[in-house]
Amino acid sequence: MQRILGEQVPDLEVLGINDVEGYVEPVEDQPTFEGNALLKARAGVAATGLPSVADDSGLCVAALNGMPGVLSARWSGQPKSDERNNQLLLDQLHDVPDERRGAFFTCAIAWVMPDGRERVVEGRMDGRIIREARGSGGFGYDVLFVADEHAGPGSGEGLTSAELAPAEKDRISHRGRALRVLAPQVASDLAG
């Protein structure tokens, strides 16, 4: 967020929720990515009095009717576990042929101002789920996801999101795409 928003607003200092003493994250109980992003951004404004950016994102797999979707982070239950989520996804897709393993990451990012103005933008990264985890970067399902921009000619080829350099992931990711749409709006709102 700092890298991408900093391109439009160079002096902007992005604070995370860990920078706000006593902040308690709200429960993500909305049925949509947009609803959860707005819920979190509104909570950020309420806790700090500062403009807030929050996102909600997830993996949508065609063969699973769009699941895990908004449940991506807690797909395998509590406590949250990337390892268990990835294993559950692989188990659920075990018999699904490579040509039906299409998926996309989606992200909704909300920008909420203390005066009540709100904006929500979305980004998407299309790709597919491979059959075994690869890579050590990123988090979540990155080790199983190959974006269309990095797919090889064969079903098991290509770089996973977990194998990409941070700048390249910023360039093609759902979150990076949404933030690049939002950044000029943030700059305009802060300048005004």
Rank of each mutant, 00 (worst) to 15 (best):
M1W: 02
I4F: 03
I4A: 09
I4M: 05
L5W: 03
G6Q: 05
G6L: 04
G6V: 09
Q8L: 02
Q8G: 07
Q8F: 10
P10D: 08
P10F: 05
E13M: 12
E13Q: 15
V14D: 07
L15H: 13
G16D: 06
I17Y: 05
N18R: 15
G22Y: 09
E25H: 03
E25T: 07
E28G: 03
D29R: 11
Q30C: 13
Q30A: 13
P31L: 08
T32M: 11
F33L: 09
F33T: 00
E34W: 02
G35Q: 12
L39N: 14
L39A: 12
K40D: 02
A41W: 01
V45M: 10
A47W: 00
A47Q: 02
T48Y: 09
G49Q: 05
P51W: 02
P51G: 03
D56S: 08
D56M: 10
D56T: 10
L59Y: 02
L59K: 07
L59V: 09
C60R: 08
L64R: 06
L64A: 05
N65M: 06
G66S: 09
G66N: 12
G66C: 13
G66V: 09
L71N: 11
S72K: 03
S72I: 10
A73I: 04
S76G: 06
G77N: 14
G77K: 10
Q78S: 10
P79H: 13
P79L: 13
P79Q: 12
P79R: 12
K80Q: 15
K80C: 08
R84L: 13
N85W: 05
N86L: 04
Q87A: 15
Q87K: 13
L88D: 03
D91R: 09
Q92M: 15
Q92G: 10
L93D: 01
H94I: 00
H94D: 10
D95K: 13
V96W: 08
V96F: 05
E99Y: 07
R100M: 12
R100F: 06
R101K: 14
G102E: 14
F105Q: 07
T106W: 01
T106Q: 06
C107H: 00
P114N: 00
P114G: 01
P114S: 03
P114D: 01
G116A: 08
G116L: 09
R119V: 12
E122S: 11
M125K: 00
D126A: 07
R131D: 09
A133F: 00
A133W: 00
R134M: 08
R134Y: 04
R134H: 11
G137A: 14
G138I: 15
G140V: 12
Y141M: 07
V143K: 01
L144I: 13
L144P: 02
A147D: 00
A147G: 03
E149R: 09
E149Y: 01
H150N: 14
G152Q: 06
P153K: 13
P153F: 06
G156F: 10
E157M: 11
L159M: 12
T160M: 09
S161A: 15
A162Y: 06
L164K: 03
L164C: 04
A167M: 12
A167N: 09
D170T: 10
R171I: 01
S173V: 11
H174R: 12
H174A: 11
R175W: 01
A178Y: 01
L179D: 02
L182N: 05
L182K: 06
P184C: 02
Q185M: 10
V186Q: 01
V186I: 14
V186C: 04
S188P: 00
S188Y: 04
D189Q: 05
D189L: 09
